[in-house]
Computed example of a mutant assay.
Amino acid sequence: MQQQQQQQQHAMSESSSGLNTSCFRFCTSQSSPCSDLSNLDICLPVLTSRNRVIHQPSCDSGIASPLPSDSFKYLTWHELQEHDVQGSQIHCPRVREGPSEEERFLRGEHHTLFARKHVTEKEKWEKRLQEDWENCVNLNLSYQDLGDMYQLENCKRILRRLIRVKRLWLLDNSLTDLSAICLPRCKELKLSKNHFTSFRQLPKIPEICHLALDENNIETLDGLSTLKCTPLESLMLKRNPCEFQENYRKLVFSKLPNLKVLDGIPKLPEDCLPPDTNFLFKICTIL
């Protein structure tokens, strides 16, 4: 009789939860079955990209790994089906690519591998039209986490196509050199929190008006004169080693006569003086 009641309770638990409780192996100690999670083995179903349910082994935390969303973590936005969103309509896209199939195999990420058909030239052209980077005007590509070279190269590929962008943010991307990039219509560019060491590593920005380079590693003002022919009005150089250079503000304004604001502070009367204002005191007076 007692055995029949236990079987009925077991069947009720299966129907109410929707999960097969035979996948749960609880500890057999005298304490509560939920008191020791280290002895709990849970097998949860995982939905793959092909809508197939598989059972993954559990990890030490008791949560099945990998999660169902892991199979989509390297999927780019333009590979999603049944949508017509273009790159010029997205203000903060993720542009970095995932690793190759060989790299994912070496990393042990077999669950992220999916069969890819041969891409035809027509499909490549349709993808290029869907990205539509040439018509982007305002774009935020910050925090892309460009940890691998192929991700960085893909980001640069997109930057080369931004021929009409006017406002571009590239914060905290570990960028070091964009000298091969040309942004002919860019008026506002934010390169804060990157790894630039020289003004010569900046992209070609002939129409720039507002430039942010704070929190980089620029040590000297060499190459700053390359921005002299641009309509640059405001410049941010805070938290760069060159900020501690003697007569820092005077040197910057002398190299950029059209500059109006430096590090958020408007041009002051004393900033208009030449860098070496003490030359009169260095003249020897012969009596």
Rank of each mutant, 00 (worst) to 15 (best):
D172R: 11
E101C: 12
V252S: 02
L213T: 02
D132T: 04
R239V: 05
L44C: 14
D214T: 01
L37S: 09
L221G: 05
P68D: 13
M236T: 02
L139C: 03
V261S: 08
H78F: 15
Q7G: 00
R94Q: 14
D132R: 07
S31R: 09
S198F: 03
L191G: 01
N240A: 06
H91W: 15
L80E: 09
H83P: 00
K190Y: 13
L171N: 08
D145F: 13
L262S: 01
F196V: 05
P241T: 14
P266G: 06
E102G: 11
T48F: 02
I163R: 11
S174K: 11
R50C: 08
L224G: 00
R157P: 00
S16Q: 09
L287G: 11
D41S: 11
C92W: 15
S65N: 14
M1I: 05
L227T: 03
C34V: 06
I218G: 00
E243T: 14
L106A: 14
F72C: 12
Q89I: 01
I181R: 06
L75P: 01
A11M: 04
G18H: 13
V137G: 02
N154I: 01
W77H: 05
R185P: 00
L113S: 06
P99L: 12
N247E: 15
L251G: 07
V85C: 12
T76V: 06
K250T: 04
L235H: 06
I163P: 00
G62I: 04
H111C: 10
S198Q: 03
V95Y: 03
C272H: 09
S17R: 07
Y248Q: 04
C59W: 09
D84F: 08
G98I: 08
